[in-house]
C-alpha cells in the first residue's frame, strides 16, 4: 500500500471510531462544542503521531516482556507535554476538557495503532498511519461537535449561526444536544448511514430475525 492510502483508508472505510470502535470516550464526552473538540483532535493527533513514530523506531529493541508498559510510558509522557502546553497556551479550553486531556493516555486508538501497526512497520508508514487514524478520529469528533453545537446552542465556534428565538429569530435550541447521551444517538445514526452506504461493513446477523408472520403461524 502506498503512503497515501495509509492516510486515506482510516478516514471512512477503516475509521477508528465507527469501524474499529476505538477512542470513543472522548469522542462522546468532549463533543459538546467545536472549540474543545478541535483542540482535543489536535492533541490526540500529536500524541498519536509521536507514539506511532517512537514505537516504530524502537520496534526492534522493545523487549516483549515489558513492551506494553514502555509504550504506555511513552504515551503518558507525550500526554503530559500536551497537557502542560494546553495549560500554558489555552488554559480556558484546558479547564473545559478537564480530565479528558489526561485520558488521552487511555484513548484506545493510540495504544491500538501502536500495537496493531507501528510494531510491524517502518517510521514513515507509521506516521502516515497515525495521521490517517488521527484525521479519521477528528472527522467524527468535529462532525458530532458541529451538529451538537449547532442544534444545541445555535452557534459554531461560539459564533451565532442560527437566529435564536430569545433574540427574535426562529431557532429554538435543542437542549438534548447539550447532554452527553445525544452523542450516542448521533454516532449510532452515523454508523447506520455509513453501513447502509457501504454494506460490506455491516455485521453478520447472529440469528435470523423473527418475522411477525412466523410468530403467528407457530403459536
Amino acid at each position: 500500500m502506498s503512503l497515501v492510502r495509509y492516510v486515506t483508508e482510516p478516514l471512512v472505510s477503516e475509521n477508528p471510531i465507527t469501524v474499529q470502535i476505538l477512542g470513543l470516550c472522548s469522542a462522546l464526552a468532549v463533543s459538546r462544542s467545536m472549540e474543545p473538540a478541535l483542540i482535543m483532535a489536535v492533541s490526540v493527533i500529536s500524541v498519536l503521531v509521536f507514539s506511532n513514530l517512537m514505537v516504530s523506531l524502537l520496534r526492534h529493541v522493545l523487549p516483549n516482556s515489558i513492551r506494553l508498559i514502555l509504550e504506555v510510558t511513552l504515551i503518558a509522557s507525550a500526554v503530559i507535554v500536551v497537557d502542560e502546553t494546553l495549560k500554558a497556551y489555552a488554559p480556558g479550553i484546558s479547564e473545559v476538557l478537564s480530565v479528558f486531556v489526561g485520558l488521552i493516555i487511555t484513548n484506545c486508538i493510540i495504544l491500538g495503532r501502536a500495537e496493531a501497526f507501528a510494531l510491524r512497520h517502518g517510521p514513515l508508514e507509521s506516521v502516515a498511519d497515525a495521521l490517517g487514524n488521527g484525521f479519521g478520529y477528528a472527522i467524527i469528533l468535529i462532525g458530532v461537535a458541529a451538529i451538537r453545537e449547532l442544534l444545541g446552542a445555535g452557534t459554531l465556534f461560539d459564533h451565532p449561526v442560527l437566529p435564536l428565538v430569545e433574540a427574535g429569530g426562529w431557532f429554538r435550541t435543542n437542549h438534548m444536544m447539550l447532554y452527553a447521551p445525544s452523542a450516542f444517538f448521533l454516532i449510532g445514526f452515523l454508523i447506520w448511514a455509513i453501513r447502509s452506504l457501504l454494506p460490506r461493513q455491516a455485521e453478520v446477523r447472529e440469528y435470523p430475525p423473527v418475522r411477525a408472520g412466523y410468530r403467528e403461524t407457530s403459536s
Binding site: P181, F184, F185, G188, F189, W192, E203, R211
Partner: peptide, 27 residues
Amino acid sequence: RHCDVPAGLEGLGLAFIIAGLLAFGFA
C-alpha cells in the same frame, strides 16, 4: 438480538442508540 432491525443498524449502530437511551435514564 432477535429483533428485526434495518440491516445497517444491526449490532453496533443499535448498541449506540441503546446506550444513549440508558444514559438519558441515568441523567
